[in-house]
Each structure stands twice: as C-alpha cells, then as structure tokens.
Write a protein that binds this DNA or RNA. Sequence first.
DNA 1: CTTTAAACGATAAAAGTTATTGTTTAAACT
DNA 2: AGTTTAAACAATAACTTTTATCGTTTAAAG
Lengths: 133, 133
Amino acid sequence: MNNYTDMLRDHNLKVTPQRLAIAQALDVRGHMSLDELYHVMLEKFSSISLATIYKNIHIMLENTFIQEVKLPQAKSVYELTKASHAHLSCEKCGAVEDIMLDMDVLVKQAMQKSSYKIQEASLVLGGICKNCQ
Amino acid sequence: MNNYTDMLRDHNLKVTPQRLAIAQALDVRGHMSLDELYHVMLEKFSSISLATIYKNIHIMLENTFIQEVKLPQAKSVYELTKASHAHLSCEKCGAVEDIMLDMDVLVKQAMQKSSYKIQEASLVLGGICKNCQ
DNA sequence: CTTTAAACGATAAAAGTTATTGTTTAAACT
DNA sequence: AGTTTAAACAATAACTTTTATCGTTTAAAG
C-alpha cells in the first residue's frame, strides 16, 4: 500500500492502477494538460480509453483530489491539490510553476471594496521563464 | 460615426453592424460568455450565424479589442479591453465584476522569487456577491 | 471465495469550434 | 455618386472536444 493509495482513499476514490498512475504522473510532473496526461498514460496502459482520462479528471476534481488551473493563453492543466498558491506560466515554452505568494492583503482589500464574500483566489502570472529569456 | 466605430477602427477592425452590436453589448453588460453574446445578438440580427460570433470573438481577441476572462468554475467571459484589473466572480449567480487592485507588489515579489519576467497578471476572486449572501 | 457497485475499454452521441463556399458589404479609389 | 476589391457575412460541412452508453472487468466489502 503506497502513498498514492492512501491519498486516493482519503478523497473517497476507489484505487485502481489507472488512478495510481494518474496520481504519480501529476505528482512527478507537477502540471499536465488532459492530452499530455493521456499520452503519458498510454505508455503504461497501451489500451487505456480517453474516456477513462476524462472521467477520472472529472471525479478527481469533484473530490478535490486534483485542481484545474485555467491558463490565459493555453489549455488548462491539472495538479494534485495542495496548499493555496499562485502560478507562473511561461508564454514561450508553456511551462507552469507553483509559487507561494501571500494574497491575503489583496483579498481583504477586495472584500472591503466589493462586499463580496471571497472564498478562493486564482492568480496566474504570465511571462517568460528563466530558460526562455 | 459613433463611439464604437472609432474604437473598432483603432484596433484595425472593419466596422460592420454586427461588430458595433458586439461592442455595444459588451460595453453595456460588461462581461458576456460566447453563447450569451450569441443570444443577445440574435435579437438584433435574427439570422446571424454562430460562426460570425466565433470569428469576431477570435479576431477581436487577436487585435486586443476584447479580452477573455477564464473563470475557475464557469465558461469564459469576454470584456472590452481596459486598464488592467482583477475580477470578482459570484459562484452562486455567476455575476462577474471588475475590481481595481494593485498587484504590483505581488508581481515584484514573484519576479524576485522566480526570476520569471512577468508580463501580465490574471487574478480572479471567487466568492458570493452581496445579492446572493 | 462471493457479491456488488464502481471503474474500465470501446464506441456512439452530443457539444463546441473551425473551415469552406457563395454572397454581401465596407471602404478605398476613382 | 459609381466601381472595385478584400473582408465580412450566413449557411453549413468538417473537425475537435467532451460526455453518454453499454457490455465486461475489477476493487473491496462481506
């Protein structure tokens, strides 16, 4: 019983080889688009169905095992759920990185100005990564 | 020659009745999804093609006449391009609002921490609007 | 072991987006 | 004002993406 098994169970997800592989792939690579994930999975499960990817992405989102990151100029990527953080997105090579930034000040400002009750903050910073500069 | 005519010309967009109506609709309503826009347009142009909406959204994005706002749990909405700002999104009624927030501090922090060259910041705050609370 | 509900692969159906084609029109130039 | 031309239009076909269906397999509880 490995690490990913427990993580899946904690989110009320039945443990299957396919799901373990998805968890591992996202853990290792950090962020993957749906079709990146599909192609990586095909290497391990040569006859995996694309529908299986869609259905697992969907239920894993529902059960907050993973999160979707919508990027300004690119396809969404998915990541294992972790502590709230912002994202850096390289507009040249497409790389996506996590970055810890304290958004509390902004969120408080926004609540005062707007009288919204804010529950989540999604910040994506687009730019050029170190490699591509 | 009205206001929207000049705005379209400034972005190298040929002025057509359909485009004027798109500009006006977005100006009046602030944010609209693609199919909201389509249905509003159908009232003025009973035989407008959905393809016309797609093509105009596309070219207007290319020419930065409009911007796409990708929302965490909903379909993208579009808005006329204006000064950089953040968005509030009500997760109950789907309303989207602009909000001016100074993100420079965060952007600077992110540049130092990451060595990315950051060009744009997209912040969407999800929550419950005043009406829905 | 059984049993059973859930997950799987295969594939059809539906929804969303883009491309094509013939016609119309905005805008530049007489 | 009338002509010309490239772009925009409506209609619709083609393509892509996502979801639903269905028979089979399997995880996990008893």
